[in-house]
Design a binder for these strands. Structure first.
Lengths: 236, 236
DNA sequence: ACCTGAACACCGTTCAAGT
DNA sequence: ACCTGAACACCGTTCAAGT
């Protein structure tokens, strides 16, 4: 009496020897953990539901027990990183503290390129409140403390957050990637100097600042903070 | 004598009655034109090589005669918009002209959301020199004219360009989309005021500035320009 | 040369089914 | 409930073939 497995059936090629995954082996948290790691390691375009499932050692459809789909998974990953973030407390005058808070957000994003891209490229109408809620509240408080009126505080925050996102995006796409900087260099060198005299003249300085992302960020941040200190509405 | 079309052959369902496209009906320029229109109308995620080909009334593979693939088509479309751009000439002091040049770039991008997204999301190591070469050269010239030294000019340009891109991205994703603003509003209203006191307090001002994208951009721009005027290195 | 459809290797997701 | 593979409707792109 031949047992079932000894029968010479032509088995279809199974890509990975994986029996049914044990019942409690998955959870939303675990999925998000692996997703964030995968996205930051292999890049956002290499990420897929199928690749994530394989990384977890489960069938693709197992993910759909925990998330409605890819978009919901993305939002959950992004929100977890942003909501868990608390800006480091610092000492000093209001503008020194504000400076530190901005730098912390900047570092958060450059350290988590996938989350930044998710934030910037998200196509859903849903949007996280803003950069990171706790940080936003803190910065608004510091701006008021600095003597800005209500409208100036809101607008100053908007300015700082837009500049921070713009800077971090440039850094993860160019400054921190040697091949991209090299491409930038050769593109500038190839421009006809007679058409772009100032650009050709300042090329060395432009390249130097491109290579130093964080320094460039601090420079612009200080520029904005200087502008804030000279605001006519300020009465401190 | 039955003509060919009267023969009762069981024809496979042809999606569109399209005979072979005439020989010279396509060109790189025409393809780019349609691509830009499609991307701005239907959104970047709705765009595909297959949809573009259908829009042009040709087979999908006809596009590959003119472009190596989707990425090359994207780059060509982006480069055409940016390279063709010349900043409007304006009058006034160096900082007034600088202000006008920044606003023109800002308007270029908010008016062409697909190009901005292409610029921001491009994954290729190749990157256009920067925002728009002619504009970059002009702004660098104005900064030097304003008395900034070489390094400050390069860094100031970097600051202005990062802020401009960050602002334009925020505008096309939130400010100019009523559903997104509404989502933002309800998210803020849902936050516990005891955890985010400043945010809850300033909610009206924050929402007002969110609704006014261009105004918010001008505010931040003026803040940066004020910072530039107070730069210690300036000797004018 | 320019344009074509069929085919391939990917996606995300629906569905009916297994445990 | 939790997890599965098959199937569907999409992609971008390769290829051999038509004109």
């Amino acid at each position: 009496m031949p047992s079932e497995q000894s029968v010479a059936t032509v088995a279809p090629p199974r890509p990975a020897r994986r029996s049914r995954a044990p019942r409690g082996s998955l959870s939303a948290e675990l999925i998000i953990d692996h997703a964030l790691r995968l996205m930051d390691e292999k890049g956002l375009e290499a990420f897929s539901m199928r690749a994530l499932a394989e990384d977890l050692g489960v069938g693709t459809m197992a993910l759909y027990t925990y998330f409605r789909g890819k978009d919901e998974l993305f939002r959950a990953a992004r929100d977890r990183v942003l909501a868990a973030y608390t800006p480091p407390s610092t000492e000093g005058s209001w503008d020194q503290q504000l400076r530190a808070a901005c730098l912390a957000v900047h570092d958060l994003f450059t350290g988590r390129p996938a989350v930044l891209r998710l934030l910037a490229e998200s196509t859903a109408q849903d949007d996280f409140v803003d950069v990171a809620t706790a940080s936003m509240d803190r910065m608004l408080g510091l701006l008021c403390e600095g003597g800005l009126n209500r409208e100036d505080a809101a607008r100053a925050y908007g300015t700082l957050s837009r500049f921070t996102i713009g800077s971090a995006l440039r850094e993860i796409r160019v400054c921190s990637r040697p091949e991209a900087v090299e491409m930038f260099r050769s593109r500038i060198a190839a421009l006809p100097p007679e058409h772009y005299p100032h650009l050709a003249d300042l090329a060395p300085e432009i390249l130097a600042t491109t290579e130093d992302g964080p320094g460039q960020y601090e420079y612009g941040l200080d520029l904005i903070l200087a502008g804030l200190r000279h605001l006519p509405s300020r009465c401190t």
